[in-house]
Write a protein that binds this DNA or RNA. Structure first.
Lengths: 144, 144
DNA sequence: AAATTTATATCACTTCCTTATACAACTAGT
DNA sequence: ACTAGTTGTATAAGGAAGTGATATAAATTT
């Protein structure tokens, strides 16, 4: 690992802390938000397909879905192909909740971006494709 | 907020998810790691000075310090200037724990960075100063 | 000296996670 | 067709991690 790798890692570590604080602690938990986002974009999914990618256990996801259902953010349905399976879908309210949350974060970030010079801003924009590549690489799996 | 702002926000949102998963869920919680890091770099601090920047309540920090102390990662001391105050310091073990955690994340990130082209890598490196500026701006407060 | 403020611990509670387990539906093997 | 094995989900018990309310003592202000 090079010194430049280490510098990037350090920079990302600090950035992570900043991004983490963009959202008030009240409201959706990280896992709840991520799950609702996943359902919003990927469509209804089985409970057993949700817990793995979120990195939590099946019973934890069962409980989370129960809470989300109670709050009207998601709902349970059945799978005609398998009588055991629960298919979870996001409600309009849940979709809105994730949308508002993301919007708030984007607004807060936009506020920060205003403090950058044109050059600095351009360098962030120029790095976007690379950041997106990192995201793809991370999804690919074994590299990470 | 411009389209480019939105694109950057979206990219950062995805990046955040990736960075979040660089650390196994077991081990230190986000707040515990952040607190230990803060003590490692900023030196011993009063309990009442720790909970605000971490964004949690005083009783939550009291409990966290109790847990960290139980695990040998931090210890309580007294403040000669104020009989009520508890001064929290990190132990060598706690310092090592944060160090290992950060190292693991850096290694994982370095693995991802290897998947970038030279151009992509350079664009990330070039954006580092701007990212650092964002971090500073966020610390400054009212902007965010 | 009394009143007010501050620092911390404790309480009762919820959320969010873990492992273990129970039960039923499904699949594979005979 | 029947049995054994596997899979999907719920539930139980417990700990971590957070909340607001409260109690107590030390410190500061009036």
């Amino acid at each position: 690992m090079s010194a430049e790798d280490a510098a990037i890692a350090g920079g990302f570590e600090s950035l992570f802390e900043v991004l983490r604080r963009l959202t008030p602690r009240s409201g959706l938990s990280l896992t709840a938000a991520s799950t609702l986002w996943r359902l919003s974009h990927g469509g209804p999914q089985r409970l057993c397909d949700l817990h793995g990618p979120e990195g939590i256990s099946q019973p934890a996801m069962t409980q989370l879905v129960t809470r989300l259902e109670r709050e009207g953010l998601a709902k349970r349905g059945s799978d005609p192909a398998d009588g055991r399976a629960v298919v979870v879908s996001v409600t309009d309210e849940g979709r809105a909740a994730v949308g508002h949350r993301q919007e708030g974060r984007a607004q807060a970030l936009a506020g920060l971006l205003e403090g950058l010079s044109e050059e600095e801003y351009a360098s962030v924009a120029a790095a976007l494709p690379a950041l997106r590549k990192l995201v793809e690489l991370a999804k690919g799996g074994p590299t990470a």
